[in-house]
Design a protein around this nucleic acid. Structure first.
Lengths: 198, 198
DNA sequence: CATAATTTGGAATGGTTGGTCCAGAAATTC
DNA sequence: GAATTTCTGGACCAACCATTCCAAATTATG
């Protein structure tokens, strides 16, 4: 039976016979990411997605399987990229790496849409183990990055403090959602320094 | 025309002629609140709601107008009640009111469902001004409560610090969503103390 | 050019959504 | 007990949902 479809998500590996894909998969994924970021998972309809991605329903399902699979792929991509950015920020902010990280966390690319991962965690984690797992891993990684900035010589020791710093930055995202101006948030964040009591 | 309906949300004020309501409105609202809390706004269908509230579709729309109106009412009720609880906690925790408040914020009644207001802020605030306004007011009130606990004599001065504390507690809700055990979160929170640099 | 592979747009699917409507039951006042 | 008012359950609606299917178009290989 040649009816068997390729496993979902399998990317066309080599040029065989047949018409080649007319769109860039990574580019389409990026567009989808924006839609999910802005509207959330449930509120993003397949219509919204295909329209933004610029492809037909058939291409959509052919290339990504279904809405949920696309979403997981997009979210995972987002996480990977976000962590990379954060590491870069940590490296760049030589004089005050922690401050730089905090600033980056509190001012995500999404502006008032906040951090897509936190959004999705809030919306889906209690009902979707895969999202919860990804979220936990993402947050753990953030902790490690901050710990590394706090105590380059012994990051393990600074983990508790790092966790608190991360929570602090993530918490400010709620303020942003509520419409508190970014400037004021930065101000609050800049003044706050954490101390770990023994 | 006697067809004109009572303004939505107008509670039957006095006993006139006619069949009285067979359900308790406050009780029904509470049930609806739980559904919204657990599933979020979009994912909570009118079917889910009516079933949980134990009333028919007609009674539902008759009493609450529509899904959105019910939601706003529930959320506003939630905010009022939550702030009251928080003030009580602050009063009760005489030795360490700030710690008590933080613990209460980080361990909301909803368990892994987190704080309903933060959830709704994340889901709706960018697209719903009413929710954003309510959220901002709620967060501001939390700040004031914490500031009052920090500096009973001059709360205004402690506002920045209070904001940071509130963000810290709210940030930990993301951890909870991701499945981090409550114990570990409390541990991190307990050790963290904030300092405001001049 | 013929064949095979794969994409494409669009129509059609069955299910769910929020919301309306109506006929009848129930409970109050007079 | 009659009149009036309101509640109740369930049928109904149009719109939207994610997904499937198909015939036609396109492009690679041989």
């Amino acid at each position: 039976m040649s009816k068997e479809t390729r496993p979902v998500g399998d990317i066309k590996s080599s040029a065989g016979p047949g018409r080649p894909r007319a769109f860039d998969e990574a580019e389409a994924l990026e567009k989808a990411l924006c839609v999910f970021w802005h509207k959330g998972y449930e509120s993003a309809s397949v219509d919204d997605l295909t329209k933004a991605m610029g492809l037909s329903r058939s291409s959509f399902y052919g290339a990504f399987g279904n809405k949920q699979a696309l979403f997981h792929k997009a979210l995972s991509h987002y996480s990977r990229r976000g962590l990379k950015t954060l590491r870069d920020v940590a490296d760049a902010g030589r004089d005050d790496p922690v401050g730089a990280i905090m600033e980056a966390l509190a001012n995500p690319q999404g502006g008032r849409d906040g951090c897509m991962l936190i959004n999705c965690l809030t919306e889906l984690a209690p009902h979707d183990d895969e999202v919860a797992d990804l979220g936990r891993h993402h947050l753990d990684s953030i902790d490690e990055i901050i710990a590394g900035a706090l105590e380059p010589s012994d990051p393990g020791q600074a983990l508790d403090k790092a966790r608190a710093y991360a929570s602090l930055a993530i918490g400010t995202l709620a303020l942003r959602k509520a419409g508190v101006p970014a400037e004021q948030i930065s101000q609050t964040l800049k003044q706050a320094r954490l101390v770990i009591s023994p």
